[in-house]
């Protein structure tokens, strides 16, 4: 009897360490955040004031928060669409064997393994309006220099540029893996069916790549909604809030203004957005992009 009980408990015992870590560092903080979003608290005072949905109504009537949401949305969609389309084009080009192509694959992947802090600092120098390399290059073509990060009109675009540059390598690699999983005989059958290149791409390659495409789209969307490091280092949300995004906004309210309840409410908003994206992803996965 005891041995049978042990048989039943053994698997739970074995996964309990990871369950504990997952519970303490992932599950508990989420519920604590939701709990905090109903309070007014400054992190240090011993009492928390229950305010109900006040934080949420404040948040939704805040012009700054709306600006932040708009910034985040623009940033996300521009980053994702640019990263995916450029990566796909590069993957189609690189999807062949040869020393040269292998080298380019490696080179293009390298930004992915560099820390975001280094990348942010590097691009801050490159984008320096006075001494930056980018303006020097633009100057060579006789164009007037850009303000890059220091002007509201170009700051968000500059951050998108950095994100795309960093994202291309990983996305290209996953696209290449996806392309290589398509059996070559499909293309041979298409050639015998007199299919033109563009038609083969649109009717065969793209549909067969759709699981990869959706995976990457959702992953980089979730990643982009949570952008933080580049903004914290390069712009601190400025100038005039032009690069303030959701996570940076949460950080500022939580850890600089110590309005932890208000920040938690914004965190709940982020949770909802990312949750909805994830649900869409799994719906899509089960419906549209299933094939074998």
């Amino acid at each position: 009897m005891t041995s049978r009980l042990w048989e039943k408990l053994k698997p739970y015992g074995m996964i309990s360490p990871s369950l504990a870590v997952f519970g303490i560092f992932f599950i508990y903080p989420i519920f604590y955040m939701i709990y905090l979003s109903f309070f007014d608290w400054n992190f240090v005072s011993p009492t928390k004031n229950y305010v109900g949905l006040q934080n949420f109504t404040d948040l939704l009537s805040d012009k700054e928060f709306m600006q932040v949401l708009l910034n985040t949305t623009i940033y996300t969609f521009a980053t994702v669409s640019l990263t995916l389309s450029i990566s796909l084009a590069i993957a189609l080009w690189l999807n062949r064997s040869g020393l040269f192509y292998g080298f380019v694959q490696g080179a293009i992947f390298s930004p992915h393994i560099i820390s975001l802090v280094s990348i942010s600092l590097l691009w801050s120098w490159l984008m320096d309006p006075e001494y930056g390399l980018l303006n020097w290059v633009i100057g060579l073509f006789g164009l007037s220099p850009l303000q890059w990060l220091s002007h509201p009109d170009t700051s968000l675009m500059s951050l998108i540029l950095v994100a795309v540059w960093k994202g291309i390598g990983f996305n290209t690699l996953v696209f290449i893996a996806g392309l290589q999983s398509i059996p070559p005989s499909i293309y041979e059958a298409a050639a015998l069916d007199r299919s033109k290149r563009w038609r083969t791409f649109r009717k065969l390659t793209l549909p067969m790549l759709s699981p990869t495409l959706f995976f990457l789209a959702i992953m980089s969307m979730i990643g982009s909604f949570q952008v933080f490091e580049t903004i914290a280092i390069m712009t601190q949300g400025g100038p005039v809030n032009s690069t303030n995004t959701l996570v940076y906004y949460i950080y500022e309210y939580g850890f600089r203004f110590f309005k932890i309840g208000y920040a938690s409410a914004a965190g709940v908003m982020l949770l909802i957005i990312v949750g909805v994206l994830t649900i869409i992803y799994f719906r899509m996965l089960s419906k549209r992009v299933h094939y074998r």
């Binding site: 059996p183 005989s185 059958a189 015998l192 065969l204 549909p207």
Partner: peptide, 15 residues
């Protein structure tokens, strides 16, 4: 003007 039947059929899986 040739047509081919492949060993693994090579049908278009998405169609």
């Amino acid at each position: 003007d040739v047509a081919m039947v492949f060993q693994n059929y090579a049908l278009y899986p998405t169609m």
